[in-house]
Design a protein around this nucleic acid. Structure first.
Lengths: 132, 132, 132, 132
DNA sequence: GTGGTCTAGACCACG
DNA sequence: GTGGTCTAGACCACC
């Protein structure tokens, strides 16, 4: 059981992703890292909104996205909580397709295979440990 | 030297990426795979547009993106060509940041590290060989 | 005369209906099935609330809804009871309007008329027999 | 091929459904009736919004709902169109569950089975013919 | 007090 | 000109 105070999500205006997706991705990482486990409550929409300095609706959209993923449950009038820590019902192709352009950039930057794998391993470690 | 007819870029309306980015990513993969090398001409904007069934501006935007990468040179009135086969001027963080959310999905899907690395190796191989 | 212990109402967090309406609908089905008849007492708000694991106000709202239907009588300080087993004062249009979107879904799912009528017959039988 | 002018969707402030759902349900009926077929363009978000006297975002939400159903395709910057005329990937239980409370009301109103079936047949006919 | 919905209006991304 | 995103603020439904 985790207190909500550990919610460390950062919003970056220069990030190409829309704000609500940055928030959703941030919470996904928190769940992936074990920082949030099944049953943990999420902060109220309004609280997280003021805490991150964004609009209420932005957070609501992020929560709706996570609800569609089956990762969280939003209970009208009673707050939201982590419903599951794993994503299922997603095909291998759907999971891998966002990887393609990201890896293409590394190939074009002339990174050798070993360096890429090393970086991937490091990123996964960072995700699982909940760092930066 | 490669003829332009081998340009095999596929556009998918269900892909979350905007069309212009699908086009740009497609050309990036062609360059990464060696299917296009330095000096190779790119098809005229109009021709690629009609060939892919998209708007001319969509292709123009894609070319502009690639120009910003330094990968292609757009010569007003004289067509475009591949200017370089490697991306430089990109920080390690910029290159790795799109990897984060893609890998988070795999972690949430409960893929073990080995399976992820195997998939990454396979994807890189597909990119370098210019497959699917 | 029916004892209250046979109250078998199930609450489902994934149901799109609000909790109070699930409770009200459940009691409506119990009355429609003959599981509760005119004069039968309903469980006290507090008891049903703890029994279903929901808030007291949720039950109170459900009872108020049923009272508006004329199905139950809520006597301050003396418990509630089934006041009638039939709904009146409802226009044909009011009764049929919730059917429209439900049937539209079946039409969009390409169910032939016969299959829909069969399913309707089965559902009515389930309601009248008080099953699942 | 249908012109957009035939879009006859009515918004009712007294309807318990939220506005965006009334719009989505209205378009679902238009598709179910054959008034809109695969490939038909939908009116631009802004146009339908002013035409119905609601906010742009309300229509955008309705369109997003229909997109999630797979019924329409929304193409950023290029309008929306009907992508399919049938709903799939929905379990029998999911399709039938909204029928339960609607039928319960009719049972409580003491409608005999025959009258209910007759009304259901009529409603389906109205849906398929695109009437009121 | 919680989340849901809606509005008006702005700005941006896209085709 | 299209749809997407975001804001500020309001009101309602729900628990």
């Amino acid at each position: 059981m985790q207190t909500l105070d550990t919610m460390l999500i950062t919003i970056d205006a220069d990030d190409p992703r829309p704000l609500y997706q940055q928030v959703a991705d941030g919470i996904r990482e928190l769940i992936a890292s074990g920082g949030l486990v099944k049953g943990d409550p999420l902060p109220p929409v309004r609280q997280l909104a003021t805490s991150l300095g964004v609009n209420m609706n932005t957070i609501a959209t992020a929560y709706r996205t996570l609800q569609d993923d089956g990762l969280i449950a939003v209970r009208h009038g009673a707050g939201s909580l982590v419903a599951s820590c794993t994503i299922t019902n997603r095909t291998r192709a759907e999971l891998l397709s966002p990887l393609r352009p990201a890896l293409t950039q590394l190939v074009l930057a002339d990174w050798p295979l070993g360096k890429i794998l090393e970086a991937v391993k490091q990123q996964i470690h960072l995700i699982k440990s909940g760092s930066s």
